Amino acid sequence: MTEAVAATFRIRPLVPADAGTVSQLVLSLSHRFLDDPGGASARRLLATLSPDAALERLASPHFHGWLAEDSSGACGLILMRDTTHLYHLFVREDRQRRGIATALWQRALSQLGAIAATRVTVNAAPGAVAFYRALGFTASESLHEEDGLRFLPMALSLDASTAG
């Protein structure tokens, strides 16, 4: 990531008041991870992405997250569950490929370093597998299809140098 790109956004901790922003950002990208956005199983999943559901997660001590913002507002977010599972990592479509996701991942690692697990998992949407591989994640199972989602379970083993 170049200095010019790094200077175009800032990263701050997510707070419960960000629940609507989290919900809106994730829902705006749902077409990328849902097989049938109008299907019954998708509706069940989409309900878990509502502002109320996001608020419940952000208020929980089991979740830690950060929000990337630029001059246009919220442009990306990362949410970790119990320091062992990368729960959400999303970047607005018009801001992708600018180093935001990588910066969010690095922030999470540096902030959680002292308490992070030695292994982090993620359920990667097919379109995000290459990105996670570039971060060092490897497939831990075969491709899953459930509740309108297709995802590849992946894991990353951390060591002291990785965790920041």
Rank of each mutant, 00 (worst) to 15 (best):
Pro126Trp: 07
Ile100Met: 04
Gln96Cys: 10
Thr84Leu: 09
Arg133Asp: 00
Pro126Ile: 08
Ala74Gly: 08
Leu86Asp: 02
Arg98Lys: 15
Arg92His: 11
Asp82Gln: 13
Thr84Arg: 14
Ala125Glu: 02
Arg92Ala: 14
Thr118Asn: 14
Thr138Ile: 15
Glu145Met: 09
Ala114Lys: 15
Leu79Lys: 02
Arg81Leu: 11
Glu141Tyr: 01
Gly127Asp: 11
Arg81Lys: 14
Asn123Asp: 14
Met80Thr: 05
Cys75Ala: 13
His144Ile: 15
Val120Met: 14
Leu109Ala: 06
Ala103Lys: 01
Ala134Asp: 00
Arg95Ile: 08
Gln106Leu: 06
Ala124Pro: 07
Tyr87Trp: 15
Ala124Thr: 12
Ser142Tyr: 08
Asn123Leu: 10
Ala114Glu: 10
Arg95Asp: 04
Ser140Gly: 13
Glu93Ile: 08
Ile115Gln: 13
Val120Glu: 03
Ala103Met: 03
Leu79Ala: 04
Asp94Glu: 14
Gly136Lys: 07
Thr138Ser: 09
Tyr87His: 14
Ile100Thr: 03
Ala130Gly: 11
Phe90Pro: 05
Glu141His: 10
Leu79Arg: 03
Glu145Cys: 12
Tyr132Asp: 01
Arg119Ile: 07
Thr84Val: 07
Ser140Met: 11
Ser110Gln: 11
Val122Gly: 01
Val91Arg: 05
Arg97Pro: 03
Leu112Gln: 09
Gly113Val: 07
Leu109Arg: 05
Gly127Pro: 04
Ala103Tyr: 01
Leu79Gly: 05
Leu89Glu: 05
Gly136Glu: 08
Glu145Lys: 13
Ile115Ala: 14
Ala117Phe: 04
Tyr87Asp: 12
